[in-house]
């Protein structure tokens, strides 16, 4: 019910934005930089543009998905390792802050050199997701109720068992929050990675349309990227609601 209500709010918000966009475009309030939305849609509907946009979106979605999975797994595993090996835990906060402080844009050229053009979008997506998931999961572990900690200790539980049986289920709502946040940053990270010279993808389209002043193509690519992020976020929110209800959390 909450998810449906959220969706409704989204739709109302997006519809309002679209109406304003159309008016602003028609009145040319922002000059050539913001064409009417209907013009962007007309452009995207042309068979050649549609084919190009869908192919690019598919590549970006693939890059973002791989980045999302890799970043989430690494973020979760590192956060969990801090629960198993306590001395690591203190360093993790510093690490996560440090990683977040590095501008992705500065890492792009470095990644092109190390992992190559093809894998840079995945790597930038993974890095963006990694931070969101690491911070969220660490926060989840901090919020394990004290009484659960006491019960766990009173039975002489090993770190592994405590992690699997008590801490991880308790951290799950936070972890999913991190995944929700991460899925949007994965798309952004992938697009950014493609900027640096990947062979194809929405990022590549955006760069080339900027250089050639193809405003309609630029906006089409931007809208598709946004829709992808939004859809993935919505799917995860749906999954979160179901999972948490099932777990009674």
């Amino acid at each position: 019910m909450t998810v449906a209500a959220d969706l409704l709010k989204w739709l109302v918000g997006i519809s309002t934005l679209m109406v304003f966009w159309e008016i602003a475009g028609r009145q040319a309030w922002l000059g050539d930089g913001l064409p009417p939305l209907s013009g962007v849609f007309d452009y995207a509907n042309e068979p050649r543009s549609t084919e190009l946009l869908l192919r690019s979106a598919g590549i970006t979605a693939t890059n973002a998905s791989y980045g999302f999975v890799i970043g989430s797994l690494i973020g979760t595993l590192i956060a969990c390792s801090g629960q198993i090996w306590r001395p690591l835990k203190q360093g993790l906060d510093t690490l996560s802050t440090f990683v977040n402080a590095i501008p992705l844009i500065a890492l792009g050229p470095l990644m092109i050199v190390t992992v190559g053009e093809q894998f840079t979008p995945m790597a930038t997506a993974a890095l963006a997701v990694f931070f969101a998931v690491l911070v969220a999961t660490l926060g989840g572990f901090e919020r394990v109720p004290n009484v659960h900690r006491d019960v766990t200790r009173a039975y002489g539980t090993t770190h592994w068992r405590a992690l699997l049986l008590v801490q991880f289920p308790n951290a799950l709502p936070s972890l999913i929050d991190g995944l929700k946040l991460g899925v949007s940053t994965a798309v952004l990270g992938a697009i950014l990675g493609e900027w640096f010279g990947a062979p194809a993808g929405l990022g590549v389209l955006i760069v080339s349309s900027m250089q050639n002043f193809q405003i309609n193509l630029l906006w089409s690519a931007a809208i598709i990227g946004t829709v992808m992020s939004g859809a993935a976020y919505f799917l995860l929110a749906l999954l979160q609601a179901r999972l948490l209800r099932r777990l009674g959390l």
Binding site: P145, V147, H148, V151, A154, Y155, G156, V166, P169
Partner: peptide, 16 residues
């Protein structure tokens, strides 16, 4: 030796 039993004011049941 797992010879301790504990119950607190907060029941501490695992909600899942």
């Amino acid at each position: 030796r797992h010879k301790l039993g504990i119950a607190m004011q907060e029941h501490g049941l695992m909600p899942w």
